[in-house]
Amino acid sequence: MTEPVVETEKLSKFYGDFKAVDGISFQIGQGECFGLLGPNGAGKTTTIRMLYGYTPLSSGSLKIFGRDIRQDLRAVKQHIGVCQQEDNLDPDLSVLQNLLVFARYFDIPRALARQRAEELLRFFALEGRSGANIRELSGGMKRRLVLARALLNEPKLLILDEPTTGLDPQSRHQVWERLEELKTRGLTILLTSHYLEEAARLCDRLIIIDHGRIIVEGAPAELVARYVGREVIEVVAPTEEMRDFLKRQRADFEDLGHRLVVYNQNGDELFIHLAKDFCRRGCTLRQATLEDVFLRLTGRELRE
């Protein structure tokens, strides 16, 4: 077996008494797209920041490309591409200059940097914009440019912190397509996201973390099958009889007051029964998603 690209062991970050990341261990294999999901404040960004050396670890170990990050940070960073959550393109420079100046931080020779920058602008459909000011770009273009910038050093690991947050659906799909293409080229990717659809589509494997700890780990489809089944029934404005009926049926359901979610439906018998006897409208049978898993495991209360 080849060596994992990322290997963490009881990785932790404490701020005083607050445990932002509390002993998480995971591995990312060569060519894998690995998802790091969790509600706001779960410790995703802190974890990612430790990975690229921005935040020092409080305890635990972290190896990237088989090297201890505490010893070889600079060598490790040379081969990582990072797309941070906040937009930090250089507004003092044009689109092309953003890439050329960034390439210098990696000591990439001028001619090579230029060649790669032009390739990447083409790859992200930005070639017509190379002379534009950053302020003239749309949100989607900025994101694509940040991605292009993260790929300049031909990284062996690409770290993406919420790469499509705030983008319109068109831009989001365009980013996904580019990321899928990078995946087929064998690039190892670590991704955090609030969009479960995005994680389900891109990730080979993922972990959901909450309060700094790992809750579950697995492939998206496998997690869906394990925690919520193939299909779920959603009932709007349920009645008491309906609740009693579901309890008698020993159905696996979650009561949200104005709404019921019935998990683990393998077949449509229960749904037909419900629809016929209890609800004329407001009953839906739909495919279970990663979002169901996420909400079920991390709860529905708001996080800030």
């Binding site: 050396g53 921005y54 990582i80 941070q84 960034f102 931080y105």
Partner: peptide, 14 residues
């Protein structure tokens, strides 16, 4: 405001 140092810190620069 520009987060230029944040971007730099993700490169080999210290």
């Amino acid at each position: 405001y520009q987060k230029t140092f944040d971007a730099m810190l993700a490169t080999p620069l210290t």
